[in-house]
Amino acid sequence: MPLKELAERRNMLHRDSDAETVLRHALNDPLIGQVAMVSSFGAESVVLLHMIAQIDKATPVIFLDTEMLFPETLQYQKDVTAELGLTDVRIITPSRDAVLTEDVDGLLHQADTDACCDLRKTRPLAEALKPFDAWVTGRKRYQNGQRAALPLFEKDDGKIKVNPLANWGPEEVKTYMETHNLPRHPLVAQGYPSIGCMPCTTRVSAGEDPRAGRWRDSDKEECGIHFENGKMVRTGKAA
């Protein structure tokens, strides 16, 4: 079945399903195939990681260590993995040769954030996803304008991308975390409601959009790990 048709059929099937049902189906659907979850272990990541752990702790989880993450994120990844009992967390890093060629001084983000994300996120993720037919993300429609029409299932560069939390809002996330007593990322309490790489993430003031601290004072809103027709999607605030 063509992937676009498969995604459309699954969207119809699960138009009234809850997130856990969508995720369970995705992980066990023979037409979807082999599935991995991609997690940043960021501010809200523990919700989907907890759901994964309830279904199958051996589900592959891909964590991109860009080598520019906050130390708190690296520790949080270890703590959450242990607490949830996840047994197949794959820590992916950028190609050593590529880093030495393209960003030997670690300052590429100052000159070209897109090139830095391509080097440290997009290419390593594309390589890590090669063995899989589909991947699960924690993206949600409320997070910015470009995600407003986000479906539960979508065709993405020859794979199916699954967004079980697409129609969740901040209250659903908060309630789930409190109900299951899940550990919070330590930087959230310090004013970081959305957490990426250390050089490109700043604190957010009261009343600001939660993602305002990501690539502040630039038109960049996404890291570029999403694909259309084999190319990275780059979305700007003016889009």
Rank of each mutant, 00 (worst) to 15 (best):
P2W: 05
L3N: 04
L3M: 05
E5T: 14
L6F: 02
R10K: 09
R10P: 02
R15E: 15
R15N: 11
D16L: 13
S17R: 06
T21Q: 14
L23S: 10
P30F: 02
Q34P: 01
M37Y: 13
S39N: 03
S40Q: 03
S40R: 05
S45K: 05
S45V: 04
L49T: 12
H50S: 04
M51K: 07
D56C: 10
P60E: 04
V61A: 02
F63K: 02
L64N: 01
T66D: 08
E67W: 07
T73D: 10
T73H: 11
T73P: 12
Q75R: 12
Y76A: 01
V80G: 00
E83L: 14
G85K: 00
L86P: 12
I91Q: 07
I91P: 05
I92R: 05
I92K: 05
P94T: 08
P94H: 06
S95R: 14
A98W: 06
V99F: 11
L100W: 06
L100E: 13
T101Q: 15
V104E: 13
D105A: 15
L107S: 12
Q110P: 07
A111G: 12
T113W: 05
T113S: 08
T113R: 10
D114T: 11
C117T: 06
T122F: 09
R123I: 04
P124L: 02
E127W: 10
A128D: 00
L129W: 10
P131R: 02
G138K: 01
G138Y: 03
G138L: 03
R139K: 12
K140E: 00
Q146D: 11
L150P: 10
D156C: 09
D157N: 07
K159P: 06
K161C: 08
V162C: 09
L165C: 07
N167G: 01
G169E: 07
P170A: 08
V173Y: 05
K174H: 13
T175K: 12
T175S: 11
Y176G: 00
T179R: 15
R184K: 06
H185V: 12
P186V: 08
P186A: 07
L187E: 05
V188I: 12
Q190R: 09
Q190A: 08
Q190G: 00
Q190S: 03
Q190N: 06
Y192M: 00
C197W: 08
T201M: 03
T202F: 14
T202A: 14
V204E: 06
A206D: 14
D209C: 04
P210Q: 05
R211V: 05
S218L: 03
E221Q: 11
G224W: 04
H226W: 00
H226A: 02
F227Y: 15
F227H: 13
M232R: 15
T235M: 13
G236L: 10
K237C: 10
K237F: 09
